[in-house]
Design a protein around this nucleic acid. Structure first.
Lengths: 330, 330
DNA sequence: GCGATTAATGCTCAAAGAGAGCATAAGGGG
DNA sequence: CCCCTTATGCTCTCTTTGAGCATTAATCGC
């Protein structure tokens, strides 16, 4: 049997803990961002020996950098393929860095007093992902550029590119699938339509890209964010994670708006309530919210019996009709 | 702003790449295992600087240890909470080790010539997960012990334990949910019903546990395996991963047997075919398999147009009736 | 107080999907 | 030819979605 070569094992590896911290406030899915100077960054810090667990290391970095306490936390993905060669003072060292990304959900976006934290809508980074006000302009711009990228390629490669573009950006017959946010970002990266693709190659992105749709982030943070969006959009459908983002009591419409904020699509109101009620995810508090602007709504709270249990504790989102996105019926 | 303390960043971290390699042969989901001497281990090796990517590092370790080439590979989870204190020659160093686990699917279980690889059914490690021949004996034994563990606790804690046991092991009204394999393992670990729980505490497990249901593995490899099982059982329902395990052409029953092998439950034959056909996942090769023992079956192949595409490329498994698991109708 | 506006909430209806089972077809072995 | 085995076709019911109509209960402007 071939044993691992012991001598080569002493690789210098640093591990970064990176957090995507999500809250939904007044209908916007917001991220906690740090780094006022250069590009936007996600809160992150190196794993240290005094951290008893990975999660506790993450929590302590986040608190240190943003004063935000984390509630729900789940591991997202470990990134490490990009061999980031840190050339410090001429010495180019081949230093491997892993980035362990976590998704955290918190209840409300306080101004993050003290730290340099700043809440930003995630749609600033992914404007093409927000369909709540209809087909976003950003998507059309992107589609034009993608088609140009399809043209650039040879016949066979061009067909593949075309098919991916169609599939991911809902061209032709294909419907928009909000869960594919990560794949969409990766396609844009390959096509050179996001600034990060140029930076990673050591090039300056052309003006059309810099000024193009979607704010760039430092390093691969926008990719991490895309991973988080895809994960979260998928997970709400089969686990009651939405409630991690809600205050203790809320109306059904508020819950719906939160679901819509994350998914980026509008939902059919009556069907949404039907699902929430059928699955017995919430119970009435007995109180009434009169601030609705119309008929007052009953306040509900999440049924804690369900918290992490039950076979089908998810929330299958049933999207509203495409046509007129702002009418009641859908 | 509080900056990461640069001095403390130079933590010694080694990163292990660990592979759960799955094949399905003659109706059994098999794992590639190494380590003929002590406990069974998954193929693994440390990440090294010459590995251009994490995945390529994994592939090279696996090939070195088992001569098995990997096809489909996906990241599973990064484990690192257990601060494994390696006490080598009296010097107890607080050395942190991350374990990056991957799931790989391969087509057939060759004898793994050359390496020390060995294929084992994953149900040797998780006998309670196999319901294909009805409610497994192992589950009943476990349930008895779990109920004792519930008794040990105080009132409040006991109720929580009871609820988890009911939910995960299908007691009372609750149906068996095959996707919860990881949660089940974690419950057993907490309850001290798997040998690893005792080893990790530095204790010798009592005979009833050692001889109890389910073969133990080295370190946390059985937990990694449970993660893989849960992931795979979930993923087959919405992505066409099954095909990674199939030969180039196969009959629908063979496909069904593979799905059953992974999920551990029997499926309703006619409904299974209906789904596969409706989703247009396969196409006929035109050939016939006469080896079926009954009426010859058409051979089909996976439609490559669908490979990573299409909105609904999954395979929602529709389970057969509980009652008589071996009759045709279910 | 009155009508317009805005939501909340109740119900209906058709289409699609899932669950279960009957029936027939087509091989091999006696 | 009968029996056994598996493949394959079809039906039927019940549930789940998707879409929309209708009613109720507040606020706002007058």
């Amino acid at each position: 049997m071939l044993e691992p070569r012991a001598g080569a094992a002493a690789t210098a590896v640093t591990v970064d803990l990176t957090a995507v911290i999500v809250a939904v406030t007044s209908g916007d899915p917001r991220l906690l961002i740090v780094g006022g100077d250069g590009a936007d960054r996600l809160p992150a810090g190196p794993l240290q020996p005094e951290h008893p667990t990975l999660q506790s290391g993450l929590r302590s970095w986040v608190e240190q950098q943003t004063r935000q306490k984390l509630g729900y936390v789940e591991q997202l993905y470990t990134f490490g393929d990009r061999c980031r060669t840190l050339s410090a003072s001429g010495v180019e060292r081949h230093h491997r860095s892993l980035s362990l990304a976590y998704l955290a959900l918190v209840r409300e976006a306080r101004p993050a007093g003290g730290g340099t934290g700043l809440w930003r809508s995630w749609y600033e980074f992914f404007p093409w992902e927000d369909w709540r006000a209809g087909d976003p302009d950003a998507r059309r711009i992107i589609v034009d550029r993608l088609l140009a990228w399809v043209q650039e390629a040879g016949h066979a490669e061009g067909r593949l590119r075309r098919e991916r573009a169609d599939l991911l950006f809902g061209l032709g017959e294909v419907a928009w699938d909000e869960e594919r946010a990560l794949e969409r970002y990766e396609l844009l990266y390959e096509a050179g339509l996001v600034a990060e693709a140029w930076h990673d190659r050591g090039q300056e992105p052309p003006f059309s890209i810099v000024g193009g749709p979607g704010r760039a982030m430092a390093a691969d943070h926008r990719r991490i964010l895309a991973t988080a969006i895809s994960r979260l959009r998928g997970k709400t459908k089969y686990r009651p994670v939405l409630f991690e983002l809600m205050p203790p009591s809320f109306t059904l419409l508020q819950l719906q708006r939160t679901a819509e904020a994350l998914s980026g699509v509008l939902l059919h109101k009556q069907n949404f309530r039907r699902i929430v009620e059928n699955q017995r995810l919430v119970e009435e508090t007995g109180e009434i919210d009169a601030e609705t602007g119309g008929r007052p709504a009953k306040l509900v709270r999440f049924r804690h019996e369900v918290t992490l249990e039950r076979p089908a504790p998810g929330l299958r989102l049933t999207t509203a009709k495409r046509g007129s996105p702002l009418t009641q019926g859908g």
